[in-house]
Design a protein around this nucleic acid. Sequence first.
DNA 1: CGTTCGATCTGAACACGTTCAAGTCGAGCG
DNA 2: CGCTCGACTTGAACGTGTTCAGATCGAACG
Lengths: 230, 230
Amino acid sequence: MAARRPDTSERGEQTRTRIVDAALGLFEERGYEGTTMRAVAAAAGVSLGNAYYYFASKDHLVQAFYERSQVEHLAASRPVLDRERDLGARLSGVLHAWLDTNRRYHDFAVTFFRTAADPDSPLSPFSPQSQPARDAAIALYAEVLHGSDAKVTPAVRERLPEMLWLYSMGVVLYWVHDRSTDVERSRFLVDRTVPLVVRLVNLSRYRVLRGVVDDAMDIVDELSGRRLTR
Amino acid sequence: MAARRPDTSERGEQTRTRIVDAALGLFEERGYEGTTMRAVAAAAGVSLGNAYYYFASKDHLVQAFYERSQVEHLAASRPVLDRERDLGARLSGVLHAWLDTNRRYHDFAVTFFRTAADPDSPLSPFSPQSQPARDAAIALYAEVLHGSDAKVTPAVRERLPEMLWLYSMGVVLYWVHDRSTDVERSRFLVDRTVPLVVRLVNLSRYRVLRGVVDDAMDIVDELSGRRLTR
DNA sequence: CGTTCGATCTGAACACGTTCAAGTCGAGCG
DNA sequence: CGCTCGACTTGAACGTGTTCAGATCGAACG
């Protein structure tokens, strides 16, 4: 029979799950900084050292949140993607779905994204360790585009998903800084910029913009042979 | 006679300077994380607690770096701004000047920008405490534009500096993640995107783009009545 | 049953950022 | 000269993330 991955053994996996659950609960309740590793260990019913046996650092603990949030976002996006054909509606729907699923995490997401801004952190959206998550996210925007009735050139069709993802990262960056009630300013940003994006996408077929667009595509190619990092 | 600001009194100012010098030296030598407050205090010849009398936290210590760097950048940009009239040359010159003046700080700037990514940190480029520095930076890009021979509509003329600053923040973000030797990829990014930006600026006068541009300007207005933060 | 060995677990110890109660210093005043 | 007061300085102590040398557990094996 096949050898088991160490962290998939029964006992280990159980303990790992207990720790994650405890951590996410405390994060939501007291925020990231307000949650100590000792508290996490205690809530999970394990020793402090044991928590570090499963998670190399406090930061690594939020990767669990990251994954959970992404699964929720995908699920929340599904209905929109199945229903809408219009590019603007699809893009807007996916972004609002993101804002919805992350609403309750806003407070502690702030400190989470702080560590994510460290290029050396595995949590950075540009880090090698995030590649799977990043690819999944880009794939989502590929579906946003390819499932729509928007007409684009082949070159754009291929690179636009990545650029839409970058655009979504911009929205996230704004959202992190957004202190308005119910993050209405972020929603406003989405509502106002999505039509702009769509219009630019449509314009990209026309002669005046063709040159700029082609050059932009080239730059994306040249710089993403090896991604934003290293 | 006028009352002295406490931190401008003779002895205090001296001590403050000693601490800043010690800190910047150690930052450059061992990086941010590698530098302990105890080491800074020791190098400055003061007690640990005394360092905290002048600087509320380790983070506040890098504001000194921030200011020094900005002064250097301004000085390095001056020749280009006095010489060039072409928008692309001016923009490119200013950005390369930034890369030059910050070259030796790259290693520890990484961790510096990490804390800067925290919206609650006074070091965030979007924070109220950074407003003076931010305004100064935007003013620089206003000079880049207004001293050039580029033809733009009044609306663009007014808002473009802020957008150029945002563009420069994007370059900085890329630079922080850039691990290539001598940050050549960042230089490549500048060389390739500046012409794009210039072409977009020129196109902004034409009918096809007018609508998009006007809408973009509106959004900037609506969202920056109160800035990106609060 | 006894041994072995790797996965799992423990808690004391460490280094660091930060706080604070208690000093010291020096100029101005009576 | 002694006193006062506020600016400045001190170092011990606290809480936290992280490390590590060693338990403990349990399945496989002889």
